[in-house]
Write a protein that binds this DNA or RNA. Structure first.
Lengths: 252, 252
DNA sequence: CGCAAAGTTGAGCGTCCTCAAGCAGCGTGG
DNA sequence: CCACGCTGCTTGAGGACGCTCAACTTTGCG
């Protein structure tokens, strides 16, 4: 049981350091190791979804966990009073369905944003297999810890950054997330509408549009092709600097 | 291992306890059962802290988990650029230190807001004990699931409610949280300064003050005593209605 | 009693939202 | 093939909400 902790307790040294190649490698490796672990000890049902497909709906009984192996998902939470909130965007290596552990029911919808693949595993099966291979638990717990930490980071952005910086910070996060997974860190295919981004960022779609336009005008980003969904980030550091400038002036 | 799930998977079904009136009793019972479980199977170090005492600092190596048995804690996260964010307030039954599972280091500071008690357990010890009593894992996972869900709920408030409603929603959450734990649901001792509340809610301390004043003027809340920290909620439903009114008009 | 710290309240202003018009991409059908 | 309409995006003008700045009040503590 002790070995289970190696992954968890040693993973430590990592801090979000922009574009450090080693950090990138490490994340890629971590994900690959986790998937290998799952494949080795569990029966993983693999499923391919296309853009718009719903992996699960809120309210569905909990019992399965999913790991994204390719593509992207959005998580949408619905409040009793009808408010709808985009609460997360998930990439390769992220786990889906963790929120259902609270009360046995999924708390949100998970919808594919692109052609995606998930591996589905039973929660019970995971626990049973963990008796033999405790590292499985380590992987689950690390995923949950990342989920918690990531949401807090996000809350900080929403609470402390003005709209344009929030848009920039969002793109920065997206780019770094992709890069950490071995994908291109300088190019983003936004598969969310302006309205969805605005919902996620706590602003109107017009503000998102204005923010993106501002970034384009300052040559921090550039649109690719006709559509306004694919964009290029010539210099990630410049994007980061854009955010920091707003923080600094805001803290006065 | 299967039995471990009873708590998790059936907890959803609202345990049939017709005599006991509310979800309140259920939550109280759940917490008591969890604490009993921990005490029975683990060596829990009990520690009392006073207002201002730091339970742990960010960056400290992960290895221990804490369960609040009395009092209240705040969680403060510090960003690399100096921004400080209050990311949570924790009461009896809540777990502390879960965020450290992501990368082996605590991600935030935990500070007692009042005279409080925590039970501290080793993560390794928990895993080892879970081999005999799988319900321990169920408790841990449920706590993490609640953490994730709660943060998403909070994100929704911050993103979709105007300032005054956010203040009201915050008080409502606080009152309901207390009530669910068997404490008074109509009385709140805010042990946070206006500045801290503002930080948590993503607004300035002046806006918090104005929001509270507005609620007092409309007799939705009332201050108790000289200090502006203790307040009374004559009608929780009215507080809830105050929030909903803002949602409705905002959704136009 | 006096000082420091925290909270309240008001006035002015800036950011962001609202409303509205115009534009671009794209599928459909004449 | 282009007209057409639909949807989503952009941009502008005006206004409202919330922030800034500042004065004042209250509380708590030596």
């Amino acid at each position: 049981m002790i070995e289970a902790l190696s992954q968890l307790e040693q993973g430590a040294a990592r801090r979000p350091d922009p574009a450090l190649p080693s950090a990138e490698r490490q994340e890629v490796h971590r994900i690959a190791a986790t998937l290998e672990l799952l494949a080795k000890h569990l029966h993983c049902t693999r499923r391919v979804l296309h853009a718009g497909d719903v992996l699960y709906h809120a309210g569905k009984p909990f019992g399965q966990l999913h790991v994204v192996t390719a593509g992207m998902f959005k998580l949408v939470q619905l409040a009793a009073d009808g408010r709808e909130q985009l609460v997360g965007v998930k990439f390769r290596g992220d786990w889906l369905g963790l929120d259902g552990m609270a009360d046995g029911k999924k708390a949100c919808d998970a919808v594919a944003l692109d052609t995606s693949e998930v591996w589905t595993i039973g929660y019970r099966a995971l626990l049973e297999a963990a008796a033999d291979e405790p590292a499985l638990l380590g992987a689950l717990h690390a995923a949950m810890g990342r989920e918690i930490y990531g949401e807090r980071e996000w809350l900080m952005s929403v609470c402390s950054l003005p709209t344009e910086a929030r848009v920039a910070d969002f793109l920065l996060w997206w780019a770094q997330t992709q890069e950490a997974r071995g994908l291109r860190g300088d190019q983003i295919c936004l598969r969310l509408s302006r309205a969805e981004i605005g919902n996620y960022l706590g602003m109107t779609l017009e503000s998102v549009s204005r923010g993106l336009s501002r970034l384009r005008r300052e040559h921090v980003i550039a649109f690719i092709g006709k559509g306004r969904h694919d964009l290029h980030i010539p210099d990630v550091a410049a994007l980061s600097a854009f955010v920091q400038r707003r923080v600094a002036t805001d803290l006065h």
